[in-house]
């Protein structure tokens, strides 16, 4: 039994099938990558997994239990959270408070316990010097780390990362990749990573699925996927055509 499994999941916006009959499995402890051209449905699939939208068809199973249609906070309590492509911090709260929210509501800690734990996660992502800065005032790169710290604070089993490295410099990307490896290896958290930066996703994932027009067109190791003609046409074709 897979840790997280999607069975023929579809999600429509009006007539548009943003996600269409998608199957995937995610094993405990692995890092799964997902790529696909813009608008291919990656964000939507993530949103369906965490319950922002219920799937119109199909099921999502987590440790064998059907979680489709549950609200995001429920799914977070079960152990799955997500960082958003468009970062949405609690702008007027400090970095510390932002992360505390994760501990208090994702993990159910008391205020003081959440504060203590939040500091550890902030330290882990390297934002300690901004502890009391309002999160609206820090740089985009820091905000992306903040997203990660807040997700970690919910002490999840799975984190979905939606283009968490968008807009970062190559050097910053390397740092984040290093962090993510630690999250995976040391904390034992399963990761599902969407990334537009090919190098990043290829480098970190053991397995990759490829979406195009809402459908899964390929799956395999980074090398296999990179050689797949359908992928080259759909994904790389867009860029190099």
């Amino acid at each position: 039994m897979a840790f997280l499994e999607a069975k023929k999941v579809s999600k429509f916006f009006g007539a548009l099938a943003a996600v269409s009959e998608i199957d995937f499995t995610l094993e405990k402890g692995e890092i799964l990558g997902m790529i696909g051209p813009n608008g291919s449905g990656k964000t939507t699939l993530f949103n369906v997994i965490v319950g922002v939208y219920p799937p119109d068809r199909g099921k999502i199973l987590f440790s064998g239990k059907d979680i489709s249609g549950k609200k995001p906070h429920k799914i977070c309590h079960l152990g799955i959270t997500k960082t958003s492509q468009i970062v949405q911090p609690f702008t007027s709260m400090t970095v510390l408070e932002n992360v505390m929210i994760g501990g208090m509501f994702g993990k159910g800690l008391t205020l003081s316990k959440a504060k203590e734990k939040a500091k550890e996660f902030i330290d882990f992502v390297g934002l300690s010097k901004y502890l009391d800065e309002p999160s609206g005032k820090i740089t985009v790169a820091s905000r992306r780390r903040l997203e990660l710290a807040r997700a970690l604070a919910t002490e999840p089993e799975i984190i979905l990362l939606d283009e968490n490295m968008a807009g970062l410099t190559p050097w910053e990307i390397d740092e984040v990749l290093e962090l993510l490896r630690k999250v995976n290896k040391d904390m034992g958290i399963t990761l599902f990573v969407v990334e537009h930066v090919m190098r990043a996703v290829m480098g970190i994932s053991e397995r990759i699925i490829v979406l195009n027009y809402g459908e899964k067109i390929a799956e395999g190791s980074p090398e296999e996927v990179a050689k797949d003609p359908a992928v080259i046409e759909a994904y790389l074709g867009e860029k190099y055509a």
């Binding site: 965490v50 007027s92 709260m93 929210i101 509501f105 919910t154």
Partner: peptide
């Protein structure tokens, strides 16, 4: 209180609040 934090989180970014476990 903790409750107050959840309200402020809703005010600032309701979707994020929901994602990190706030029963909004």
């Amino acid at each position: 209180s903790r409750f107050g934090y959840s309200l402020k989180a809703i005010h600032e970014a309701e979707n994020t609040a929901e994602l990190v476990g706030v029963n909004t």
